[in-house]
Design a protein around this nucleic acid. Structure first.
Lengths: 168, 168
DNA sequence: ATAATCTTTCAGAAAATTTTGAAAGTTCAG
DNA sequence: CTGAACTTTCAAAATTTTCTGAAAGATTAT
């Protein structure tokens, strides 16, 4: 298989995975393209490679920068802007997890915590069960959150070398 | 706040969260409805509560059963089918994680492993960097996967009580 | 200042996803 | 067997999301 062919396949696959997880396909594809591009790419290069419009490119590159996994690079003597992706996958993954938690999970959890303040008029049992379900979700989210924060602190060696042995 | 109002809010929030994570809004809402319903619900009850069609209800309930987080319940002497959600959030979360891994992540990883077999024609450096990126992704996926398998084995107490202390 | 080059915005168009509802299918009591 | 009660399917419609491209906005060289 040729390198360019493999890159193309990688980009397509990354796009599919992104879509399934609620990420814009183009955003995922641009990220993939930058991940496998040794040198920073300009907007026009991204447009050409992925066959997408300037507007689409611009918006999704900005989004990737907002997420903190792509950076703008300026070359001296060139008016164009270039973009480069962080190649450290562990760092990228942690960043994505943290961002999704902050943007998508936390607002929901805040909303949930409002819901436990219920008039006890209705049958005790129903209210109790509802509050219990919400509480379980909060508890799980809290544990997962702490787990993730823990992960961020671990380095790769720690993770594979130690944690996995603890739990057999 | 009234109980029914709180349930409604919960359902809406769950739908939003689902959407953001690539889950059909209705599927998430049905799941939420069943989570906060003490007794099993019939198709008609779900349709009425969420104001959705029979077809939509049927398809999404089936999907939830495929995921293993909702079960069909038959009441003796009743032709209707009823549905109930597993209320153990930890179990549900583990199930969802395992299913998404199996359905969405693993196929991509399989595809990725095909991509490392590249003609070394092109400049060594480019090929090397590409293979390195793919390898990093595989490695991360592998670690995460093992981490999740580990999680599934932990019970809640273990998780909060021990793991979090290990990592301060 | 102004022209050239590049970036950003966003309304409308296109594409993808979701939903409906009616017809077909199934099951079971009588 | 027949029909009532319920479930399933899926083509077409509705909705949501994404994308385009041209105009407006920046920025810099001359």
């Amino acid at each position: 298989m040729k390198l360019d062919e493999a890159k193309q396949q990688f980009i397509l696959n990354w796009g599919v995975l992104g879509t399934q997880w609620g990420i814009n396909r183009t955003m995922a594809q641009i990220h993939a393209l930058l991940l496998v591009s040794p040198a920073p790419l300009s907007t026009d290069e991204i447009m050409a490679q992925l066959q997408i419009s300037r507007g689409n490119t611009n918006m999704n590159v900005r989004e990737l920068m907002d997420w903190g996994i792509v950076e703008k690079v300026l070359k001296p003597g060139d008016r164009k802007e270039f973009f480069v992706a962080d190649k450290d996958i562990w760092k990228v993954a942690m960043r994505i997890i943290k961002e999704r938690k902050r943007r998508e999970v936390e607002p929901i959890l805040n909303a949930l915590s409002q819901l436990k303040d219920i008039d006890a008029e209705k049958g005790d049992k129903d209210v109790k069960q509802f509050i219990d379900t919400i509480s379980q979700i909060q508890k799980f989210a809290d544990q997962a959150s702490k787990g993730v924060d823990g992960l961020v602190k671990m380095d790769e060696h720690w993770f594979t070398g130690t944690l996995l042995k603890i739990f057999k």
